[in-house]
Design a protein around this nucleic acid. Sequence first.
DNA 1: GAAGCTTACGTATCGCGTAACAATG
DNA 2: CATTGTTACGCGATACGTAAGCTTC
Lengths: 309, 309
Amino acid sequence: MEPFDLRELRYFVAVAEELNFSRAAERLGIAQPPLSRAVRRMERRLGADLFEREARGVALTELGASLLREARGALDAVTAFSRRAHRAAQASTALVVTAKPGIATDILRRVLDVYRALPGGPQAEFVVSGHREQAAMVRDGRADVAVLGSPYDRGGLELEVLDVLPRVAALPVGHSLAHRDPLYCRDLRREPMPRWERSTPAERAYSLGYDTAEGELVPCPSTDLKPGPVIRDAAQLLEVVALGQAVALVPAWLAERSPRADVVYRPVADAGPYTTVIAWAQGSRERSVAQFVRIATDLYPGEREESPS
Amino acid sequence: MEPFDLRELRYFVAVAEELNFSRAAERLGIAQPPLSRAVRRMERRLGADLFEREARGVALTELGASLLREARGALDAVTAFSRRAHRAAQASTALVVTAKPGIATDILRRVLDVYRALPGGPQAEFVVSGHREQAAMVRDGRADVAVLGSPYDRGGLELEVLDVLPRVAALPVGHSLAHRDPLYCRDLRREPMPRWERSTPAERAYSLGYDTAEGELVPCPSTDLKPGPVIRDAAQLLEVVALGQAVALVPAWLAERSPRADVVYRPVADAGPYTTVIAWAQGSRERSVAQFVRIATDLYPGEREESPS
DNA sequence: GAAGCTTACGTATCGCGTAACAATG
DNA sequence: CATTGTTACGCGATACGTAAGCTTC
């Protein structure tokens, strides 16, 4: 069982993502024939096909689909190692921390202030990252630490919970549900709900009220869901709610920080909470990371147990 | 920042483990000069040394030490991918499950019976593995699913808790602590305690009573610890306790299953519990794995939350 | 015939092994 | 002088690019 090469993994992932050998080859910066050959060789070694090549393009076989995620993870692990190694080797090792705009940024700023004031004046760099990009940045080594909110995928990460907030429904004023009490997730499902750009099934399940904090697979009840407008950030979300185009579940924090005359917020009895966590690369035992996490968990004792004396 | 090659990672880990270029080269099945060169090249690319080469052997630099764990993880991820890919490609895909002797085996057997009785008669193979080897088997793809007990390192794994048991003190009959009530972890620390073969700091902390189920770093109070005999399995543990050579913390299950005239079991107020979990490779979304896990969590509803309706 | 995957072939890169060298106790 | 890591050099493997099939719409 000769193990696969990194190159082969990269090729496989590229083709699986492009579903087109020519485009994948272009993306990889090589000609198309070598790519074709390399993938064929992988398949020969496996004794099974990864792709179904048909006249009209390429599709993943069941086998290929089931391997894609793991292949990405393995590639990320190696990439992360390389990035972190290069960073750690430099004399000026500034910790790189990232968060998305919102409550996470608030938290991160406070932790950073304390961290930078430590004896020795450790360096730290704050990178604001895009929607749902935080975890990927830690996974592939672009960042050391991230503060992120549910729904997160804990793959490749270790994490501590910093904060747990209930989610509330954001409704346009005068909406029929605004006075229902108690309000449940299933009430909302009859309404159009905003859809986050490039969202995964787990994320869509979360926005319906499920608690997918563990990144688990949730049976997504796609029954009679009215597709709402596509959104890219919280401001847009509130906008489409205010316009009456959708209703949404949002962290209570957003409700407090964004009072609007045209939006009302109502508690939802059975919605999974909005959890904010601090995450770092699995297995990282760097002192600077540990210190930073320690400060965060001291400032935000989310829900943690104590060790015996 | 050209990323490192798999070969380079393997070389680095080999040298870091052997701390000797010649032996590492032999283990890798190559001559020593290429190894030396490859490592040198890595260091040149990093701009920093991974090893301190002195007349009397080789040592890891601080940098090297901090990268070793992550390098192992990355290698494991790729190896696991290769193994699982080959296994999944074969027509007869028997699920490979593993557990260590003890409560985990009991649990696993029950789950296996149900799994094999599923419609379609899925194949599954039960591999008994050595002490603390279960997680590694899942991590590098030799097994699909493992049932294991604390202290486990959740790196690279996803898991569900199946069972939580208190730990009790195992004392030789007539021991002065046998009648102390309540009994605390710190009482035990004045006694010699058995040391598991090849144990890690986290494992040693756990055997002192800490709750390291999360695989976290625990400040290990190495103060005035009397080193006890080295043991390799539970039977040996009870033996050395019976002989009065040590006292130990053991899962309550062991106490029930191994009543002995020469050993008494006493509750310990503040000892972390013994947790049995079912673990599978992070990101694995194979149907057979999911089914198996589902059966296990149905049979053993350890401590889990429900999703909203 | 246009698009897209595969086969054929020559070339260049690169890592390996052997052998000679250097340093240290 | 023995052990162990480094440098020098020729060779073989292999992956790449270009060019020429092959199939399908």
